[in-house]
Simulated assay, not measured.
Amino acid sequence: MKRFLFYFVGLYMTAMGISSIIVADLGAGSWDTVFVGLYNKLGLTPGTWSIIVGGLLMFLNGFLAKEKPDFLAFLTVFTLGVFIDFNLFIYSFISVAYLSDKLMLFAFGFVLLATGVGVYLQAKFSPNPIDKLMVVVHKRFGISIALSRFLCEATALTIGFLLAGPVSYGTVIIVLFIGPCIQFSYSKMELLYNQPKRAAKRVI
């Protein structure tokens, strides 16, 4: 029960963070610029494009890793996409016009995004195909994790820019700092997730 709670609560926090950053309009994450850019060019919704692109990456990961696609990862993609669209719908009733409001919303979204990823990863379900792509490229081409992450983010950012997605100063902040913040969040949430187990061991 706790595993599912961390999974869905974490995904909802992640989606709310992504939606908040998009609405703040100060620059979104690399992959989110792709989803919003596709929405601006072709219609549908950012959440729907998140699901479609995530599904395609699921097959790409399988091809590059020379293994069957991780179909369970689609649950993560689908749930996250639905949550993103739900939060964007809620935000459609809220006016964010002033720069101060946008800055606060961006900061709120950034914290939620970093915290949410740290929470949902505790469930150890199949990861988001975007996150797995980094690992697959690292193993397939024998490059470092850092370089693999950079190449994946740079590719998404380039596509997002070409699609006229929300690439701005906030994008730079997210690219530079979201990784360390997620690492910090993950370590703290890992302690919280495993706390009952440790308490049980002390009792025994």
Rank of each mutant, 00 (worst) to 15 (best):
I94A: 10
F71I: 07
G10I: 11
G37W: 09
P166N: 09
Y186V: 12
C152S: 06
S148K: 03
A154P: 00
K68G: 10
G116D: 09
F184Q: 10
L80T: 11
M13D: 05
V137D: 08
G55N: 07
F150P: 02
L151A: 09
D101H: 05
P69W: 11
F125G: 05
I94C: 10
T14G: 02
E153C: 08
A24L: 04
L88P: 00
A199S: 14
F184G: 09
T171H: 05
G179M: 08
C181W: 02
P196C: 13
I130A: 13
L103R: 03
K124L: 06
I145Q: 11
L147N: 13
A146E: 15
A24E: 05
S185L: 06
G54D: 07
A199D: 15
G160F: 02
D131V: 11
N61K: 09
L176W: 10
F110R: 05
A65C: 08
W31I: 02
F83N: 00
K102N: 02
R198Q: 12
L60K: 10
Q122W: 04
L26G: 05
A146I: 14
S148T: 07
Q183N: 14
F177R: 03
T158G: 03
F110K: 07
F106H: 08
G179I: 03
C181D: 00
K197V: 14
G109E: 04
V135W: 04
A97Q: 07
L112P: 03
V96Q: 03
L157G: 06
F35M: 13
L42P: 01
V53M: 15
L72M: 09
G29D: 06
M13Q: 00
